[in-house]
Amino acid sequence: MPGIFTVSLDLELYWGVRDARSIASYESNLRGERDAIRGMLQLFDEHAVHATWATLGFLFYKDADELRRNLPEVLPDYRRQQLSSYRYLQEHAWNTADDPYHFAPEMVELIRDYDGQEIGTHTFSHYYCLEDGQTLEAFRADLKAALAAARSHGIPIASLVFPRNQSNQEYLAVLDELGIACYRGNENAAFYTPRNQREQNLIVRASRLLDSYINLSGYHTYALEDCARSRPFNIPSSRFLRPYSRSLAPLEGLRLRRIKRAMLDAATGGRLFHLWWHPHNFGANTARNLACLAEVLGYYGYLRERFGMQSLNMGEVANLLEDMHAGQA
């Protein structure tokens, strides 16, 4: 079986960083995000790369008034209330006539117009599954609202990405219950273990940063037989595509080599490599970030020609795993 190159993106606009940054402090990224998305789509199209856009349910609505009419009945009661996007929605009023930060139905439609691009879900509200105070019932309600938002655009949802990679094993049954076939799990290393925000200490963050440049934890490529063992299917992350950093620019070669070596391992071993990032990561230094992506996709093209590597989005991988799962039964 040929290796598989999978790409997923966490499309969330300001909702994804709202509890950590002000709009003013992150405005260049947010303002540039739409142009970055257009550039990514063009590159995916040029290189015949399929991708999953795990899209926050809030983004499907045109403004705050429409969103407020479609909130779930059960809301999370986080112990740290600043984590709640619902609380933010209640406490803030903003000009919806020109709002690049909170809503993007036109971008959802643009993405779905491109071949091979899958719209997945990133929950409705950027729901945190490991934070104190939230519950299984609230998660189910949030996810139902996300699916309803997508259905209002005629989009079925098969794939999920947990916000902040807080995958909660106790919640997987809800995905299966609601018809979600797969999710993006975490790399198998101690510093990638799912954690809540309080547990994201300096050592954990520094280890992940260093691992982006130096191979501390392995290639994180995966045998499809392992991914196919149980539903919903775990299609784990292999590597976060970190955005360009001026302070780390001298290490760019190491960052790309780290990614390419893992891709090569997947291509030659018939395994899966899963690359991910947030579109807003590319909103600043957009040209440099797109150039880096172009090099990664160009390398995928080489691996496709040399070893037959395939590009599949998460939903397409799940279809393949479903066939394998049936064969394992």
Rank of each mutant, 00 (worst) to 15 (best):
S125A: 06
H126N: 05
Y128Q: 06
C129Y: 02
C129L: 13
L130E: 03
D132P: 12
Q134H: 12
T135Q: 09
L136R: 07
E137W: 05
E137L: 14
A141C: 09
D142C: 00
D142A: 03
D142M: 00
A145Y: 02
L147H: 09
L147K: 12
L147N: 06
A148M: 06
A149Q: 03
A149D: 00
A149E: 00
A149I: 02
S152M: 14
S152Y: 00
I155T: 05
P156T: 14
I157H: 00
I157L: 05
S159C: 13
P163I: 01
P163K: 01
N165S: 08
Q166A: 08
S167C: 15
E170S: 14
L172I: 13
L172D: 06
A173G: 14
A173E: 14
L175G: 04
L178D: 00
G179D: 09
A181F: 06
A181Y: 03
G185T: 05
G185L: 01
N186T: 14
N186V: 15
N188I: 10
N188F: 01
N188C: 08
A189N: 07
A190T: 10
F191Y: 12
F191W: 12
T193F: 09
T193V: 13
T193N: 08
P194Y: 02
N196P: 10
Q197V: 11
R198L: 12
Q200I: 14
Q200G: 07
N201C: 11
L202K: 15
V204P: 04
A206F: 08
